[in-house]
């Protein structure tokens, strides 16, 4: 039940992020969500896209260091306290969240939160037992 995130290693050089977006545009790939983690020297760009396989190929061909990462995508109610409930489900079991970011779906009723944890299987079980809606890769792509 994990979803695929595309991660890209980026040096902090002007124009590098633009090159990523152009490579994806040329490949006809739609970005659903993204997050950028950075240090002074470099950053890691994390992307949720409609076609992960094609996105990875397009970026690799454009010369980027790309990897597929398994993440967990959870649909949550788009209202105050929505994220808090989800995070509680995960951390209650002693699981450690490496990073997380969220976006709001097109209809605006549901938001989606993307997680990376050290033990995905346990986290998914915990979330599902807590009644959260964990999205499959197909469901995520269809948003």
């Amino acid at each position: 039940m994990t979803a695929i995130q595309i991660s890209v290693f980026l040096e902090n050089k002007s124009g590098r992020l633009a090159e990523v977006t152009h490579a994806l545009a040329k490949g006809g790939i739609n970005i659903r969500a993204l997050s950028l983690a950075e240090t002074i020297d470099y950053g890691v760009l994390r992307l949720i896209v409609d076609k992960p396989k094609e996105a990875k190929t397009a970026l690799a061909e454009a010369g980027f260091t790309v990897t597929e990462t398994e993440v967990i995508a959870v649909a949550m109610p788009d209202r105050p306290g929505g994220l808090a409930g989800i995070v509680d489900l995960v951390t209650r079991h002693g699981l450690n969240i490496e990073y997380l970011y969220a976006f709001v779906g097109q209809r605006g009723e549901n938001a989606v939160v993307i997680f990376r944890v050290d033990n995905a299987e346990e986290a998914i079980t915990a979330l599902q037992e807590g009644g959260a809606h964990v999205l499959s890769a197909a469901e995520l792509s269809a948003i």
Binding site: Q5, S7, F9, A37, T39, Y42, V44, R46, T65, T67, T69, E98, Y99, R116
Partner: peptide, 9 residues
């Protein structure tokens, strides 16, 4: 390449 900053650090 790992996408986790802590590993890169």
């Amino acid at each position: 390449f790992s996408d986790e900053m802590s590993k890169l650090e």
